[in-house]
Design a protein around this nucleic acid. Structure first.
Lengths: 234, 234
DNA sequence: AAAACACTTACAGCTGATGAAAGAAACTGA
DNA sequence: TCAGTTTCTTTCATCAGCTGTAAGTGTTTT
C-alpha cells in the first residue's frame, strides 16, 4: 500500500483530503509541524507528498525545495494560489504536479496515481547533474544510455553524490567501500578512484573528482576549458 | 536537443505550437497523417509527443493507447475538450499530462520540461506488469528493488516483453539470444530459460513462462492459487 | 511401454572485477 | 633545484559469476 504524506494547514481541508486518500486505499500521514516539515518528510520517506503552499512558517516552496534537493520523492502541489507565477515557480523547483483547489477527487486521484506510476522503480535512484545512479545495482543512467558500474566504483560515486560538493576523506571512502576503517588500503582505494574517473570520462559525465592534497576528494563540475589561459613557456 | 512530435489537425494551432517549441530550443516534428500517426510516432521515436484529442480518423485516445502500450514514450495531451471524462480517460490510458487549450506558453513549456526531466534515463525502459526492464543493462526494477539480470536472461525476458501474450518459438528465442538461427542449441536455450524462470520466481514476478509443447513459450500472468481445486487422491 | 520432448543439475571454461605491487608523476618546502 | 611525500598509473595474478556442455530425470503422447 502506497504511503502519502499530506502537508496542509487548514484542518478541515486536511481531513477531507485524508479521507479521500484513505478511501482510495492509500496510507495517509498528516504533517502538522510545518517548521520541521522538511526533515520530518525526509525521515518518513513516503511514496508521495501532497503539499499546500500557503503554510505558516517557511512555506510550501521551501519544503518543496528541500525535498527535491534531497532526492527524488514526488511532490504534488495542491493549493488555492492560482497565480501562474506560483505554478511556474513550483514546477521549476521540481514539483511533479500543480493543481488548484477546489479540485474534484477523481482528478486528484487520477493525477496522483499517474505520478506514482511514473516513479515506479525510482525510489533508489540518486539524482546527479545530468545523470542518475541506482543505489542497489549501481546502474548509471546518462543521456539515454545506461551502464552498470562495478560495485566499488558504484559505491564511491554514491558517496560523492550523497555528500555533494563536500570534501570526503580517504577514511570515509574506505569505510563506504569496504565497511571498515581498520585496514585502510590506500592503494586499493587509489586504484578504484582511478577506475571511476576513467569510467566517468568515458560515459561523458561533466563532473570530475578533484583531489585535495592531504585532505581527500570532492566531486565538482568540470570547468569549461578556456583557450586564453596563459601557459608556462617550454 | 530534445525532439518533440506535434499531433494536431488545426494547421494554425499546429504552427503556433511548433513556433513556441522551436523558440524554446526543441526540435519539432509535425505529424499530419492521423491515420498512421501511431506507427509514424513509434518509428520516429521522439522524446515527447504533444497530442490533440479531436483528430480525424482514429482519434487521439487511440494514438495515446498505442504509444503507451508500446513503450514508455511520454505523451502530453493538449486539447480543447475540457470534459473531466476526457481527462480521466487520457490519464488512465497513461498520458503524462493533460492541459486544455488555450494555454499560456510558459505553462506549457514548464510542464513539458518537467515531464522530460522525469523521463530522463527512461527511454530504454520496457514496462511489464508490475516491473520495468532496462533494455541496455538488463536491470530489472520491481517493488522498489532492482536486480541485474545476466545478459542471456535479460535478452529472453526482453523478447517476452516486446511480444507480450504471444507465443514465441524456440528459433525466435535463439535468434534473440545468439543472433543466429543456424546452430540452434536447444539445450543451451533450455538451461537459460530455466535460469530466467528461477530468477523471476526469486524476485517475485507475477508472470510465469508457460510452455506450449512442440510450439514454443509464452509469458503469462500467474494464476491465483485456489484452495478449492480438487486434487487427485493419493 | 516406448518415443519424443521438456526440464534439472553438475561441472569446466571464460570473462571481467578486484587488489597487490612496482614504479612514474606531481606536489611541497627548503 | 632537490629530496621527500603524496598521488597516480599500469600490470598482473586471483577470484567470482555467467555460460554452454553433458548426462540424467521427468513428463506427455501415441
Amino acid at each position: 500500500m502506497k504511503r502519502i504524506a499530506v502537508v496542509e494547514d487548514d484542518a478541515l481541508v486536511r481531513e477531507e483530503l485524508s479521507e479521500i486518500l484513505r478511501r482510495a486505499n492509500y496510507e495517509v500521514y498528516e504533517i502538522c509541524e510545518f517548521e520541521k516539515a522538511g526533515e520530518r518528510l525526509l525521515e518518513l520517506s513516503p511514496d508521495l507528498v501532497l503539499l499546500d503552499l500557503n503554510l505558516p512558517g517557511a512555506g510550501g516552496f521551501e519544503i518543496c525545495r528541500i525535498l527535491k534537493q534531497a532526492g527524488s520523492m514526488p511532490v504534488f502541489v495542491l493549493t488555492s494560489r492560482d497565480q501562474m507565477q506560483d505554478e511556474l515557480r513550483a514546477l521549476k523547483l521540481g514539483a511533479d504536479e500543480y493543481l488548484t483547489k477546489p479540485c474534484r477527487a477523481e482528478r486528484l486521484l487520477a493525477r496522483l496515481e499517474n505520478i506514482l506510476k511514473r516513479y515506479e522503480g525510482r525510489r533508489n535512484l540518486l539524482e546527479g547533474e545530468g545523470f542518475l545512479l541506482d543505489r542497489q545495482t549501481y546502474t548509471l543512467y546518462i543521456d539515454d544510455t545506461s551502464v552498470i558500474l562495478p560495485k566499488n566504483q558504484g559505491k564511491l560515486l554514491e558517496v560523492f553524490l550523497t555528500r555533494r560538493d563536500q570534501l570526503i576523506t580517504k577514511e570515509e571512502l574506505c569505510l563506504a567501500v569496504w565497511g571498515t576503517t581498520e585496514f585502510i588500503d590506500e592503494n586499493a582505494l587509489q586504484v578504484n578512484l582511478t577506475r571511476l574517473k576513467k569510467t566517468m570520462a568515458v560515459v561523458g559525465m561533466r563532473q570530475r573528482i578533484e583531489t585535495v592534497r592531504g585532505e581527500g576528494y570532492r566531486l565538482g563540475l568540470q570547468q569549461q576549458a578556456c583557450a586564453y589561459v596563459s601557459r608556462p613557456q617550454p
